[in-house]
Design a protein around this nucleic acid. Structure first.
Lengths: 353, 353
DNA sequence: TTGTAAGCGTTATCAT
DNA sequence: ATGATAACGCTTACAA
C-alpha cells in the first residue's frame, strides 16, 4: 500500500530518454545557472521533451543534494489573532514569490518546542518567529538555525519591529492635543517587548507634557477584548474614589480598545463625548465597530514581508556574512489614524498642544 | 557560498559509527515499524549514540525513498479573512499532531495556479483547498493529487462542508419566531456554493411560513463589511417607495452583517428595536460589535480539522481504497447564537411561530 | 558540449 | 539479528 500517493511520475531520466541525452544534461538545461553552456539544439530538444512529458523537478531530491530546501518555517502563537494573520500573509507572499515554500506552524504552548524540531527535520533554510518571547526558552531549540524575529529584539538573532515607542507617543500627542489631561492606559504585563515599548512611549510623552500617569490609571489586562473590557470596567469603578474619571484611554492594542469601548457603552458613557479611546495596530475590526476606532496603524503585513525579505537575503548571503550580526533595522513606521473614538476633552478648550 | 545554510550535521552514519553498527541498523531501530526485531543490546547502543549526538533524521531523504513526504498543502484565498484563518488553524493543528508539515499558500488570483505547482514539486502528499471555486479551473492543476475541498462540493474530490442550508433555515426560523414578516436578505452573487446554500435554506424556510422574499428585498453585495454596508443603505433607501421598511435582515456572513449594522446606525435606526440583523459564521468580531451580533455559528476551525483528518485518513488508506469516491460526509452542524441584534418585530406580537 | 561517476541521507531488499 | 547493496531523483565534478 501507499504506493506513490503523492503523484509525481516523470523524472529527469524520462526526459533524458525522450530527448536522447543523458540525465545530467537535462538537469543542466533545466535547473542550473545560465553560465552552464549547452548547445541550443539539445537545449531545445530537452525543453520540448520536458514540456511534452509535463516534467516537474522533484524539489526534495534537489534539496537533498544541494543541502538547501528553499523552504522557510513560519511560527506564530495563534493564527486566529488578526495581527498574526496579517504577518503570516505578508511573509507568505514574499516567500512564495521568491520561490520558497512556507511551513506554517502554530506554537500554542511556548514551552513545547517540538514543532520547531519538526521544522528542522524538514531541513528548513530558516525560520521566522513572531512574538514568541524568543528571548527565553528557544535558545538551543533554535541553535544553528537562521532565525528572524518579528517584534522581539534579541542580541542573538536579527529581526524586524515596528516603531512601538513611536506608536505610544503618537497616541499621547493626539490625546494631549485634544486637551485631555486625565488620561489612562490599559495594557498587558510587561513580558512582550512591543507592548512594553508602546507603554513607554506613551508614558514618556505624557510626562514630557507634564501630565501624570498615576498607577491607578495604569491597568494591566490580557491583550484581548475581554481583558480590555474588564480593565475599563475596573477603571470606571475605581474613579469615583477621589479623582475625576479619566477623559481618555490609550489601549495597548485594538482588541483591548474594542473591549474598553464595550465597557463604556455598558456603563452608559458616550464615546467620544465622555471618554476618548485610542487603540493600536489598526486591525480590520477597528473600522467595523461603532464609532470607528481611532488607532495607531502598525503595518503588520509589511512587517511579515520585511521579515521574509530579511531572512531570504541572509540565506543568499555567504556563510561568513551570515555569521556576523545583521545591521539593526530601522523600525517600521507607524501612523495615527483618527476616526470616531476621540474628541476634544469635555470641559476643556481643545487644540492646546 | 551557501554551504549548508540549513544546519543539520549529524547523520545516521555518524550514529552508526559511534554505536559500532551499520547505518541501516540505525535506521531500523530509530524510524521503522516495531515488528523489525533488533537485539535489545544494539537498540540500546544506537539510542544512546543518537541521543548523545543529537541526531535528527533528515525527513527529506526519507521522503525521497519512501515517496511520501508527510507534508500537506493548505490553500486559501486570503488568510486575513478570519474565517479562513480559523480553518487553517484547525487544519494545521491536526496535521501537526499527526506528524505532517503544512505548506501554506495563499491563492490570491484563482486564475494563477502556479502556487499549486510549487506545492506539487515539493511532493506534498495531499492538499486541502478552501473555497477556491474549485469546480472551475484547477481540474488539471490538481490532477493526480489527493485533494480535500472545504465548503465546495465536487463530484471529483471529497470534501467537508458545513450545513449551509440549515444555517439559512435557522436564521429564518429565528426571525419568524420573533414575529418578523417583512424580511430581507443580503448576500453575494451565487458563485460560492456555501453562500448559495445559505440563501436557499433561508428562502425556503420563509416560503414554508408563507412569507415572501421579493426581489427588492434580496440584495447582492460582496461578502465584506463594505458590501453589507452599501447593500443595507440601498435597502433602506429603496424601502420608502411603496412597501414598509423590512424589520429584519439576514446576511450571508458576519462581515456583511456588521456592515449592515453600521449602515443602520448611520441611518439613525436602532438595532434591534427598529430592525433585527442576523449574521452567519460567528467570527470573533461578532461578539465585539455593539450590540453583539446574533448569528449562526459555523465551526470553521472544526471544518479545517475535519478536512485534515479526512485527507490524512485517505493517505493512510490503500491506493484502491483511495481510488473510489469517498462516502459523502455529513455536513458539520451549525447552531443559532442569539445575541443583541435581534428582537421581536415592532408592532407585532412576538412568539407566534 | 556532453556523458560518466559519485554522492546527498534515507529506506528497503536481500544475504548472511 | 545485522550488514552489504541498491535505490529514491537530483546536482556536481570530472572526463571525454
Amino acid at each position: 500500500m501507499n504506493a506513490n500517493p503523492g503523484g509525481q511520475r516523470v523524472t529527469a531520466h524520462d526526459v533524458a530518454k525522450r530527448a536522447g541525452v543523458s540525465q545530467p544534461t537535462v538537469s543542466l538545461v533545466l535547473s542550473r545557472n545560465p553560465n552552464a553552456r549547452v548547445s541550443p539544439a539539445t537545449r531545445q530538444r530537452v525543453l520540448e521533451a520536458a514540456e511534452a512529458l509535463g516534467y516537474r523537478p522533484n524539489v526534495l531530491a534537489r534539496a537533498l543534494v544541494r543541502r538547501r530546501s528553499f523552504s522557510l518555517g513560519l511560527v506564530v502563537p495563534d493564527l486566529r489573532n488578526p495581527f498574526f494573520a496579517e504577518v503570516v500573509s505578508g511573509a507568505e507572499r514574499v516567500a512564495r514569490e521568491a520561490g520558497y515554500a512556507v511551513l506554517l506552524t502554530e506554537l500554542p504552548d511556548p514551552a513545547d518546542l517540538r514543532p520547531l524540531d519538526a521544522l528542522r527535520q524538514r531541513q528548513i533554510d530558516g525560520v521566522i518567529m513572531d512574538a514568541v518571547g524568543a528571548t527565553a526558552a528557544p535558545v538551543d531549540a533554535l541553535a544553528d538555525l537562521n532565525v528572524v524575529l518579528v517584534d522581539e529584539p534579541s542580541e542573538r538573532w536579527p529581526g524586524v519591529a515596528s516603531d512601538a515607542v513611536g506608536a505610544g507617543r503618537l497616541a499621547a500627542e493626539h490625546l494631549l492635543s485634544l486637551g485631555h489631561r486625565e488620561i489612562a492606559f490599559i495594557g498587558p504585563a510587561l513580558a512582550v517587548h512591543t507592548f512594553r515599548m508602546r507603554e513607554r512611549g506613551f508614558a514618556q510623552a505624557l510626562r514630557g507634557a507634564g501630565v501624570a500617569l498615576p498607577s491607578d490609571r495604569l491597568r494591566r489586562a490580557p491583550a484581548t477584548a475581554a481583558g480590555g473590557q474588564a480593565a475599563m470596567r475596573a477603571l470606571l469603578a475605581a474613579s469615583p474614589a477621589g479623582r475625576a474619571r479619566p477623559t481618555a484611554v490609550f489601549c495597548a492594542n485594538d482588541l483591548v480598545a474594542i473591549g474598553a469601548l464595550k465597557a463604556c457603552a455598558a456603563a452608559g458613557l458616550r464615546v467620544p463625548q465622555d471618554v476618548s479611546i485610542v487603540g493600536c495596530d489598526d486591525i480590520e475590526m477597528a473600522r467595523l465597530v461603532t464609532p470607528e476606532l481611532t488607532t495607531v496603524a502598525v503595518p503588520a503585513r509589511e512587517l511579515g514581508a520585511r521579515a521574509a525579505r530579511m531572512l531570504i537575503r541572509r540565506l543568499d548571503a555567504s556563510a561568513d556574512e551570515r555569521a556576523r550580526p545583521a545591521a539593526p533595522q530601522r523600525p517600521v513606521a507607524v501612523r495615527l489614524v483618527v476616526r470616531g473614538t476621540t474628541a476634544a476633552a469635555p470641559n476643556a478648550a481643545a487644540g492646546t498642544p
